[in-house]
Every structure is written in structure tokens, then in C-alpha cells.
């Protein structure tokens, strides 16, 4: 079953990667070249086109991790654990970059690199949960125990996601309120197109990254297994000798 999954991932990854490229190239072009500057922030508002998709994908990847963790605890399928591990690594990447680009945007708009704002704190907590998840995976050699503990941590950590999302509504914050909510969309038409293109592009890129990383982790596991078996054979021959 593992091999069939890897074959499927290898078959479809090219198409997925190309779809991401088709959205990201016009998105990047519109974001950097044709979209008009913001009335108050000016040109610096262009950081939004990169920061918002990264923050969205950080949350999407954590949601993927949580869903796969529930699935793992239910089915105990090692493939799903492999996908969880891959999603966690990608989530750490997107969360870190979202925090960094947010910090770069904060300096010219809020005149500070960092502030103890509910959105920023809850997002930093998300990064800590993810780092904790990856550390937990390295603590045990028992693959089943390791997968079960880390899946439990991922599910418990999911509580931070609604806090990240609604923090701008629940508390007084420097961060702007939700741009897309039940009250409507508060982004101008000229800015909407590149933001949508970049968001879709990065969402597809996340799927592509997940496919590549799942393959990478599985192949590493396959090689480790092979080397382990060779080592056992070597010791056996040594003892026999």
C-alpha cells in the first residue's frame, strides 16, 4: 500500500506543481507590478500579498496535521503518520516565514518589529506547538508510540487555531480585523485579484510540498530499514564466525 501511495504521488506531483506555478506567476506579477498602492500604507501594503497567504497556509497545514492525526488514531495507518510528519515540517516553515514577513511589515506600519499583540502571541504559540511536535517525534524509537503521542499533541494543539483566527475579534489588537468574514469582504478589487491568486497558488504549492515531503520521508524510512537490516545481517555473521 505504501508503494502504491508513493507511485501515485510521483504520478500526480508534476501536474500539481505546474498548477501552483500557473497561479503564482500571474499572482506575483500582479502583486509586484500592476496592483495599485494602498491609500494609507502606500507601496508597503504589497507585503500583504505574501504575508497573508503564508499565514493562511500555516493554518491550513496545521489543520491538515490535526485531521491526519485524528485519522491516524482511528485507523493506526503508518502512511497517515508519514503524512502527519510531512505536514508538521511544512507547517513549521510556513508559520516561521509568516511571522518573519509580518515582523517586516510591522516595522514601517506600527513602528516596531514585534508587539505583544493577541494575534502575534497566538501565532508564536502555534510555532512552539509545532516545534514541540517535531521534538516529540525524535524522543522515542518505538514508531507506534511516537506516532500516537505526537498525534495526541497535534489534536490538543488544534485549540490554538480558532484563537489565532478570532483573536482580532475577541481582543483589542493592533492587527487589522478579518478581511473576509460573514460581514463581507473588505479588500478593494484591485488588491483582491493578486491576493486570491497568491492564496490559491500557495495552497496548491502546499499540496505539492506535502506530496514531495511525504515521498522524501518514506524513502528515508525505506533506506533506514534497509541499512538496519544490513547491520543486523552483519552482526549475525560476526557472531556466527
Amino acid at each position: 500500500m505504501l508503494l502504491s501511495l508513493i507511485t501515485k504521488l510521483r504520478r500526480y506531483e508534476g501536474g500539481v506543481g505546474f498548477s501552483a506555478f500557473c497561479f503564482l506567476v500571474p499572482g506575483l506579477y500582479k502583486a509586484l507590478v500592476t496592483s495599485s498602492p494602498d491609500y494609507y500604507q502606500g507601496e508597503v501594503a504589497r507585503i500583504m500579498y505574501i504575508h497573508v497567504p503564508f499565514a493562511e497556509i500555516a493554518m491550513l497545514s496545521y489543520t491538515t496535521l490535526s485531521i491526519c492525526s485524528v485519522w491516524y488514531l482511528w485507523k493506526r495507518d503508518p502512511i497517515v503518520d508519514n503524512v502527519c510528519h510531512a505536514a508538521a515540517g511544512i507547517s513549521v516553515f510556513f508559520t516561521t516565514v509568516a511571522l518573519m514577513t509580518g515582523s517586516i511589515w510591522a516595522k514601517p506600519t506600527w513602528n516596531t518589529w514585534w508587539t505583544w499583540d493577541p494575534r502575534l502571541i497566538s501565532f508564536a504559540v502555534l510555532l512552539m506547538i509545532l516545534v514541540g511536535y517535531l521534538m516529540l517525534r525524535r524522543l522515542s524509537d518505538d514508531t507506534e508510540k511516537r506516532a500516537a503521542y505526537s498525534a495526541t499533541l497535534a489534536i490538543v494543539g488544534f485549540i490554538d487555531l480558532p484563537i489565532v483566527h478570532f483573536s482580532v475579534e475577541w481582543w483589542r489588537t493592533l492587527h487589522q480585523p478579518l478581511s473576509v468574514s460573514t460581514r463581507g469582504v473588505s479588500i478593494g478589487g484591485d488588491m483582491k485579484t493578486p491576493l486570491i491568486l497568491m492564496s490559491i497558488g500557495f495552497s496548491i504549492l502546499f499540496v505539492y510540498m506535502l506530496m514531495v515531503r511525504t515521498q522524501m520521508l518514506y524513502l528515508e524510512y525505506l533506506l533506514e530499514g534497509k541499512q538496519g537490516r544490513l547491520l543486523t545481517d552483519f552482526h549475525r555473521s560476526e557472531n556466527d564466525g
Binding site: P37, V44, R46, I50, T101, I104, W105, K107
Partner: peptide, 18 residues
């Protein structure tokens, strides 16, 4: 009139992300 473009910040953010 336009606000300060702050090009350095935009370039930094895009370089970090891309």
C-alpha cells in the same frame, strides 16, 4: 501625494518568503 514607499521592507519580505 503618496505615503513613503519603504521599498527596502517590501524587497526584504519578498526575498525572505520567495
Amino acid at each position: 501625494i503618496f505615503p513613503n514607499p519603504n521599498i527596502g521592507f517590501i524587497v526584504s519580505a519578498y526575498l525572505v518568503a520567495c
